[in-house]
Design a binder for these strands. Structure first.
Lengths: 181, 181
DNA sequence: CTTACCATGTAAGGCGTTACATGATTCA
DNA sequence: TGAATCATGTAACGCCTTACATGGTAAG
């Protein structure tokens, strides 16, 4: 099993904090990680099976108020694997913004349409920024109690910084487009 | 042929400016578009075939100083398709930063390692920012002559804004990590 | 009683990269 | 003469998403 498969490493990373079910892992992806990494059930559950098969994690069945769960824990081998991967330099930081793509070809459609794409983008970013700011407030209160919060906060602050820059750009871009029409 | 296939729309967008060969399209992807969209030959050439098959583009063979080329042009139908796609709201703006992922799990590896990931990230961003700044300077000089430059400049300014924010974050994040060790 | 959430998975198919294969020309 | 660039393509493979399939529980 090579080191490169990202989904495995992400899951191991989450399991290194705490034991989790596949469902809970998905929730983490949709909240804490969603701004810079995503994954669906269709990749999470098979990855969990592989992890167990390769001795990186173990699973146990539990029933809580008649509800069946499969809880995964990281093994020593899994922790080593995670550490090896964390040591390697990041190889791919990539951004795919359809909004920018549409803007790039903006002359084909005109300034009004470009502005409406920017408006939609701005609205989404504003909402997400609010959410990030809330997260940061909560994290700052707990940052001393748990070291994992410190690193989580760092990624949230990355989001806040960049999303604020996006908003600045939105305003300037729209001003430019309105002026030159 | 549905509207959704991105690679087709990107190629049509490029062809809406000028006739191009597959090779030249790849070059555009690696320069003007690389900060927010990427594509390899393995997706470009098949897409070009499909585009011709569907009447969105036409190709012609040419020989320039004994060098064989296949030059593609957009058709009226292709232009309509492009415009239809440009009208639709952008559905996916997504970022996948392995650096942030590794940072998120930073407590497993420690502050020193986190800092070295940030250093690598910072170095790459600084280089790219320089390149973006150079592009912006050139574009600003030509922005009045050609409307397509205006929109190109907008995306470059997006890059400059966000990359500058990244650098600010890098410095703050490192300060935080060094202080708390 | 029905909507939302908890919970686990599979199958088909899409999309794209990497690596390979080939060959000409230009420049040092 | 050898490296870089121009130029076109294919095949294998990997990875992931979407949609489907199933069923329990909590809350309103």
């Amino acid at each position: 099993m090579a080191i490169e498969k990202k989904i495995d490493c992400v899951i191991l990373g989450l399991l290194s904090h705490e034991d989790l079910t596949g469902y809970e892992i998905k929730k983490r992806m949709d909240t804490s990680l969603k701004y810079f990494w995503g994954a669906s059930y269709g990749s999470i559950y098979p990855a969990l099976s592989d992890l167990v098969k390769n001795g990186m994690a173990v699973k146990r069945d539990e029933t809580e108020n008649n509800r069946h769960k499969i809880i995964y824990s990281i093994t020593q081998k899994g922790r080593c694997h995670l550490k090896d991967w964390l040591r390697l330099p990041a190889e791919k930081d990539e951004l795919r913004y359809e909004t920018l793509l549409k803007l790039f070809f903006g002359n084909e459609a005109g300034a009004l349409q470009a502005i409406s794409h920017i408006d939609a983008f701005e609205e989404k970013i504003e909402k997400d920024l609010q959410h990030l700011t809330d997260s940061a407030d909560i994290l700052r209160k707990n940052v001393s109690s748990d070291d994992t919060h410190k690193y989580y906060l760092l990624t949230v602050e990355f989001g806040i910084k960049t999303y604020s820059a996006y908003l600045e750009w939105c305003r300037e871009a729209k001003t430019m487009l309105k002026k030159e029409r």
